[in-house]
Amino acid sequence: MSMSDTLSLPVANIEAAIECLLFVAGEPVPISELARALEMEEIPVESALRSFQVTLTERGSGLNLIRIAGGWQLATRPAFSEVVARLLTRTSTKLTRASMETLAIIAYRQPITAPEIEAVRGVSVAGVLKTLLERRLIREAGRKQALGRPMLYETTPDFLHYFAISDLSQLPAIDLDTAPPVSAEAIMHGNPSLSTPISDEAENSDQTEDTLEEN
């Protein structure tokens, strides 16, 4: 089927087709995948998604179309959450504060090693990392080219999904420049060079930045 054939479909049909795709997928579908299935360009697909979003609201549907974890997905409307929760058995638990803090640090400084996280939090993170890995909120992202080749960690699409955001750019802006990363070495050796001016840490932060850029 050529593209012009599909494009000549009435808008309502494209929306219906999108509804089908999102219904069967059961996970966030990137626009590229929708476009591939619809044999359409991504831009018209995106506008069809937007108008489908409006259509759902106008028809008073119990479903809502949201952008989440790098794709589009049908979700129940928050207003009906209690009804749905009564039907389903609740299994999920909230993240602990330790998990939250660790996740926050990883989200902003990924990829990041365990000692680097510990330098920020001031406490060991081994157990927390294990939990976060098990919950698939983070994953291993290779090893840092540094002494001991420590494992690097980054957030996953499941992380985005857990907080219902579509990508990392939606994270609240923070100003890490006012608080330069503390060298992990200083913490590990238990002797932070307290008199060292902050700017002297350029070497350490350079290393971190390099890894960030590679990613």
């Binding site: 219904f23 069967v24 997928a25 059961g26 996970e27 809502n64 949201i66 997905q73 049908l74 979700a75 129940t76 928050p78 959450s81 749905v84 929760a85 389903l88 999920s92 909230k94 993240l95 504060r97 939250m100 803090e101 996740l103 926050a104 640090i105 989200a107 902003y108 920020v120 939090r121 001031g122 857990y162 907080f163 219902a164 955001i165 994270l171 609240p172 923070i174 100003d175 890490l176 608080a179 330069p180 990363p181 503390v182």
Partner: peptide
């Protein structure tokens, strides 16, 4: 720096709360 991450945790908590009101169809 740590304080900034604590601020982020607050945002995460709100999002977590909102997200718990959404349900998705499992494939």
């Amino acid at each position: 720096e740590y304080q900034q991450y604590q601020g982020v945790v607050e945002a995460f908590r709100t999002w977590e709360e909102m997200r718990k009101k959404l349900f998705f169809r499992t494939a």
